[in-house]
Design a protein around this nucleic acid. Sequence first.
DNA 1: CGCAATCCGGTCACATCCTGGCCTGAATGC
DNA 2: GCATTCAGGCCAGGATGTGACCGGATTGCG
Lengths: 318, 318
Amino acid sequence: MADPTARMLRLLSLLQTHRFWPGGELASELTVSERTLRRDVDRLRELGYPVAAARGAGGGYQLQAGSQLPPLLLDDDDAVAIAVGLRTAAGGTIAGIEEASVRALAKLEQVLPPGLRRRVQALQDSIVPSLGEAGTVDGEVLATIAQACRDQERLRFAYRRADGTESERTVEPHRLVAHHRRWYLVAWDARRSDWRTFRVDRIGDPAGSGGRFAARRPPGGDAAAYVRSSIKARPTRHEAVVLVHVPAAELPREATWFRGEVEPVDERSCRIRTKADGLAWLTVHLAFLECEYRIEGPPELVAFAAAHAGRLARSAAG
Amino acid sequence: MADPTARMLRLLSLLQTHRFWPGGELASELTVSERTLRRDVDRLRELGYPVAAARGAGGGYQLQAGSQLPPLLLDDDDAVAIAVGLRTAAGGTIAGIEEASVRALAKLEQVLPPGLRRRVQALQDSIVPSLGEAGTVDGEVLATIAQACRDQERLRFAYRRADGTESERTVEPHRLVAHHRRWYLVAWDARRSDWRTFRVDRIGDPAGSGGRFAARRPPGGDAAAYVRSSIKARPTRHEAVVLVHVPAAELPREATWFRGEVEPVDERSCRIRTKADGLAWLTVHLAFLECEYRIEGPPELVAFAAAHAGRLARSAAG
DNA sequence: CGCAATCCGGTCACATCCTGGCCTGAATGC
DNA sequence: GCATTCAGGCCAGGATGTGACCGGATTGCG
């Protein structure tokens, strides 16, 4: 513990676990004199981490929010919580941060002790795939691929094509792109000497093969655009329009939980618009309406609703 | 940059951003000789962080997963992704890690630069409160309270009782407990000299008042048990039982997304069980069944389904 | 008001360490 | 084999980290 650098890290860690620390306690925790502790605190400040100090009785040191983030010293539970949170965020629960989540996940998983990784995976497995995502992606797979992208490391995996045939691939991974609640890997397929996009939910057992490669410019210079253009069979996207005979203000909250937008019509009614990939999703929120409403479109939704209503009525009658 | 401790942190940070680093590059990045770099790497290893080295052409240094987690050096995007992920995890998306998430969140938010905090809040606000939670809790509120609990700092806030009356409280916060997808704060109300539980979604503008207090033993020694016992009006919990005329294996995946459990009956049918607080939630997954099924119970669900089917049929017919 | 607790920073002497340069060895991949 | 890269011993000189001691400033409390 004589080493000042080890002491610094310990000091930072202590300052992060509790908010206030009297100088004396910190000093004895680090087994140094109080003078040295003050010098260490000074050094932290010089490095840009704002350590505030409260004088007088009941005072102490406190690490504050500064202009930059100090190194985070996490305990096991923190790390597991963060990894699980990131994995679900990467799953698409929160629009807009999927890719940042995956990058952060790669950074964390690189140094995550194996025991913790098992805990994370166990928790992940216990989660019901929510919000009806067609291709739910395993966090472990995603993290492995993200790491390979970042490190420009060749990647080998088994790819299951839409028609069911499996093949072994070795690629130079370029970037992960989240699109329409699905993950795609843009990579250079060395054997075929061409760019390919792979659906991540069809990738199995990815592993870095060790070899590194030189970065290549993706087609068009923009991987995300390339993914968009290369997806042929985009899932049909429906928009439901429902006229509800209730003022907008009195609409139950749950009726719009699934990406619904409300638009007032008059004092007695309003209109709900929802977008989704499958027809079933569009009727989900209707269960919460305890008043009369009318499906204005699209026609196929009307048909679906009628069929659904029939099944439901029979199920209740039976 | 002459300071070895600052250099250590920078070295750790470099090793976390890219996987492989040739020694020469690292040395010039840190503006030290290669000899010193090797010594720094040695020191990292002595501190317990496993830095692997690959010899030969194309070799380099690489930070591996060890037995303990090294200090994480995050860039802005990482931090935002983590904070957002933790906030949603704390919201109850993932059962079992809510409290660990909140603790990690407190640690992160304590040092999160204000600019990043605004970004996090903006993202948080843009998220549709999903899965129909009655009382959605603001992440900022949760983080503030968690920090006060951890630091044993008095907390002041506005509390909105169920009957609508508001009052200003100052308490000694003890612990946050997640129960039934809701957050409760167990705290000692100094003015009333007694323990209280507060629903976090009814707390407004919490702020640490600066003063600290000595820890107190919660009633019964277990805050979580105290919360459970002190909730009188627990929401009625229903369990739906639906017999589906389709083999368990062929059940559409979406049919069980909302905490559903499947139990095979015979080769031609299976049974789904779902629990929820409101009847409407129980019918949500039925929309995904394109086959016949029968609601076996409870009776009130049958009635609800019939009414829902009627509304739906009329809406489609109109 | 005075007192105790707490942070702050100057100075000094001494031991320690850190650094760069140089060299030999060993592993690795082409 | 040969180039590349990590590993680590040795050395000399200078930088720096450390504890002891001090007086000062600020704060909260009785």
